[in-house]
């Protein structure tokens, strides 16, 4: 699968943000803090009990819950096309 929600990335994956989904206010919030289409992204840390995860997006580290992370669509690296 070429495109995955950010929440489904694992530590072996890297990619870049393809699009932001969800409500307009969430999308604008994400964009305002620098989570934008085209930014490189990777997973940095997880917790044992399914809590939030830390992602490296651009040059910054963000901590996001599943609910928000699943609204960010990521194109994984080394995979030619995206549905």
């Amino acid at each position: 699968m070429a495109c995955v929600p950010l929440s489904e990335m694992n530590k072996q994956h890297s990619g870049q943000i393809l699009r932001l989904r969800g409500s307009r206010s969430l999308r604008q919030r994400l964009a305002a803090i620098g989570i934008l289409k085209g930014q490189p992204v990777s997973l940095k840390a997880t917790t044992l009990w399914g809590g939030p995860r830390v992602y490296t997006i651009g040059q910054h580290q963000y901590c996001l819950r599943h609910e928000e992370a699943c609204q960010i669509e990521v194109q994984l690296a080394d995979i030619a096309d995206c549905a």
Partner: peptide, 9 residues
């Protein structure tokens, strides 16, 4: 409402 949890480390 559920407040977004979004923090920068």
């Amino acid at each position: 409402y559920d407040e977004t949890f979004l923090i920068e480390l």
